[in-house]
């Protein structure tokens, strides 16, 4: 668990803090996304976890211990670190890049070699083909995969990721996000993830910390709760006017109470794994009020209606206004 306790940071020579009285917890195995406009101190906050930046006041606890209990370099070797610009060592092969931290903490050679291959496979790069290459020989997306693999190398329980999928095209970014979420299901790391993109935050986060300028925590909650009930004008404008739709995109058709299907063959067919936003889009697109929910295994599951989705959204809107 990572715990921010009244953490503030004011750079020397500046009167305004970049982070102010920040307090929140990141639970074990969760991805906590720090999101906000530029100048909100999200990267500064993340970099204080592994002491690349030292707070002016307050403290950060890791599993109950202040992160100043050990030397900064010792601490950093136990925390995975991946950044947008990747920062691979251009003069080292992919294998050597990934082996950086295991080498620093003194793993045996055979163990490192095996680990490098394991990680390359995990991030979808053929070890045979890639381990001996130099970073310049890889595409941007491949380099970001290596960057993430390198951060995971010594199996740190905590990882810091600063826009780790930021330097690639949107299609590759979505693929990398999906892959990483799949990996995270297995590895269950405690992750502090920084992005300026609210959609990425909603997709990646178990929790989202929305920061506003001056490093003030505007809201800290699950994506669902933030979209359903933004606590301030700032948050609701930051998450966007389409937050109702965004929230729908977090829910799947299979989670809804479906109505029985009888004689509804003409309805558009919707896979049960589809999210509600896409289901809505399909129904509107087909000019239908209802859709037929199907699954791979059991065929037709039932029907879903636009009205149902409307009710769902309306209910949470009402909840937001304290009714």
């Amino acid at each position: 668990m990572i715990e921010f306790r009244d953490v503030s940071k004011t750079y020397t020579g500046s009167s305004r803090p970049v982070v102010k009285d920040l307090s929140f917890e990141v639970l074990d195995g969760e991805i906590c996304v720090l999101v906000g406009p530029s100048g909100c101190g999200k990267t500064t906050s993340m970099r204080m976890v592994n002491r690349l930046i030292e707070p002016s006041s307050g403290e950060i606890l890791i599993d109950g211990e202040p992160n100043t209990a050990m030397s900064a370099t010792q601490l950093r070797r136990r925390i995975g670190y991946a950044i947008q610009q990747i920062g691979l060592f251009p003069h080292r092969t992919i294998a050597d890049n990934i082996a950086t931290v295991p080498g620093l903490v003194g793993w045996e050679k055979a163990r490192i070699t095996a680990r490098v291959d394991e990680l390359l496979e995990l991030v979808g790069l053929d070890p045979e083909q890639y381990r001996g290459r130099y970073p310049a020989e890889l595409s941007g997306g491949q380099q970001q995969r290596v960057g993430v693999a390198r951060a995971m190398a010594a199996d740190p329980p905590i990882m810091l990721m600063d826009e780790p999928f930021g330097a690639v095209d949107p299609i590759t970014r979505h693929r990398l996000q999906d892959e990483f979420l799949r990996i995270q299901q297995e590895i269950k790391k405690t992750i502090v993830f920084v992005t300026h993109d609210i959609d990425e935050a909603i997709k990646m986060g178990d929790k989202i910390a929305i920061l506003k300028e001056g490093g003030i925590l505007a809201q800290y909650d699950t994506p669902e709760n933030i979209l359903a009930a933004p606590t301030s004008e700032f948050v609701s404008s930051f998450v966007g006017s389409d937050r109702v739709l965004k929230r729908l995109s977090l829910m799947r058709v299979s989670e809804m109470d479906l109505e029985p299907a009888n004689g509804s063959d003409t309805l558009p067919r919707i896979d049960e794994r589809t999210n509600l936003k896409d289901a809505l889009s399909e129904m509107i697109g087909a000019g239908a009020e209802r859709g037929l929910v199907v699954s791979d295994r059991s065929g037709v599951r039932g029907t879903i209606s636009i009205q149902q989705i409307k009710n769902l959204s309306h209910r949470t809107e009402a909840g937001r206004h304290g009714v």
Binding site: N50, A72, T73, L75, R76, Q85, G87, P90, R150
Partner: peptide, 22 residues
């Protein structure tokens, strides 16, 4: 590149290691 040094520091290389290895 600045990011190469930042990654090195972030992974726990000491200043000396950054100088000689990077």
């Amino acid at each position: 590149p600045e990011e190469t040094k930042d990654a090195a520091r972030g992974m726990g290389l000491t200043n000396r290691q950054i100088l000689f290895r990077v």
